Amino acid sequence: MALLSLRGLVKRFGDTVALDHLDLDVAPGEFLTLLGGSGSGKSTLLRVVAGFETAESGAVLLEGRDIAAVPPHARPLNMMFQSYALFPHLSVAGNVAYGLKRDDVPRAERDRRVAEALALVRLQGFERRLPYRLSGGQKQRVALARALVKRPRLLLLDEPLGALDANLRERTGFELRALQRETGAAFIMVTHDQNEALALADRVAVLEAGRLVQAGPPRAVYERPATRFVAGFLGGANVLEGQPDGAGGFDCPGLAATLRAEAPVDRGTAACALRPERITLRPSPLAGANASQGVVEEVAFRGDDSLLLVRAAGGALLRVGHAEEDGAPPPRGSTVHLAWEAAAVVPLRG
């Protein structure tokens, strides 16, 4: 049985639909990340589950029990806010112990569990320090310890790494994943960082305009996006317009080329996705499908590779990845020959 089941959630703010008949299941011990643009409904979804917002309709089932009418403090879950929401007048230990104190946990048990939580996030020796004396990363750890000390089956995290710099964010992200495995709790994390979502999650759920448009293991969602939005949002795939040619291929006027996937393209296909890193530069043109040519308009160095913007023969602007191990990228203004495998072509319906 799912730990959390959301059924038909609808939430509006005035004329704006924040959640549109959304269904979602979360398994026990699962790390799920919610991805989507601003206004897609990610944080609203967390707040409905936590009880800080009330849905107009639908059910929030935790272990089969509908908790829609249960107040936030009485729900057997915790939420970690992006701002961390630490009490400035309380010490690190006081912040972590706050929820236990409200629940009338005996002092000896409270002290033991606070010590365990601080050890879990490696903040031993910080018990008496006030929040203003902590770094951003340390504040994040205090907030996480406070959320974990009550041993919830489900932890909600709203952009928990957003205030950290890039290096600390990556390291803390992996520590967060290790903590999730160690505690066995299910985590639902909202993030705008696609790399973070792909690296940490067991499963990624992509929201658009309050609807769940695709959910699955990170690699599956990345490599086989279901819609134009998912293809463009997650990893910046090239979304190529055209129409099926009736013979299993897909005619793309913007490339002046025919695309062929591993399976015949059916009549319902509205576009095809092609990842930049799946396109290769060839020394000479190739005849047939899955090949084109164009002119390099821009070159951007990105560390381990370069991103080329190539104006294809039919006018489409393609994003093309060029690995550093393949030598220097072609300069602006040069003509390049492009090719890709059938496995790189992903038909899209929406």
Rank of each mutant, 00 (worst) to 15 (best):
L34E: 04
L35V: 04
L35T: 04
L35E: 01
G36C: 00
G36E: 04
G36K: 10
G36T: 00
G36D: 01
S38T: 10
G39Q: 01
G39E: 10
G39M: 13
S40C: 09
S40K: 03
G41R: 02
G41Q: 07
K42Q: 14
K42Y: 11
S43L: 14
S43Q: 07
S43P: 11
S43W: 08
T44L: 06
T44P: 08
T44V: 09
L46Y: 06
R47F: 11
R47I: 15
R47G: 12
R47D: 10
R47H: 08
V48T: 02
V48W: 01
V48D: 02
V48P: 02
V49R: 02
V49K: 00
V49Y: 01
V49D: 01
V49I: 14
A50Y: 03
A50K: 09
A50H: 03
G51Q: 07
G51V: 12
G51Y: 05
G51E: 05
F52L: 15
F52G: 01
E53Q: 06
E53K: 04
E53M: 13
T54N: 07
T54S: 13
T54L: 14
A55Q: 06
A55G: 02
A55R: 00
E56F: 07
E56R: 09
S57Y: 03
S57D: 09
S57W: 04
G58K: 05
G58E: 02
A59P: 10
A59R: 11
V60F: 05
V60G: 04
L61S: 01
L62A: 07
L62H: 04
E63H: 06
E63D: 14
G64Y: 07
G64R: 11
R65S: 14
D66A: 10
D66R: 13
D66Y: 07
D66T: 12
D66S: 13
D66K: 10
I67D: 03
I67Q: 02
A68D: 05
A69P: 00
A69C: 01
V70R: 07
V70D: 08
P71D: 09
P71N: 06
P71F: 12
P72S: 07
P72L: 14
P72E: 10
P72M: 13
H73R: 13
H73Y: 12
H73L: 15
H73G: 11
A74S: 12
A74F: 07
A74V: 11
A74L: 14
A74C: 14
R75M: 15
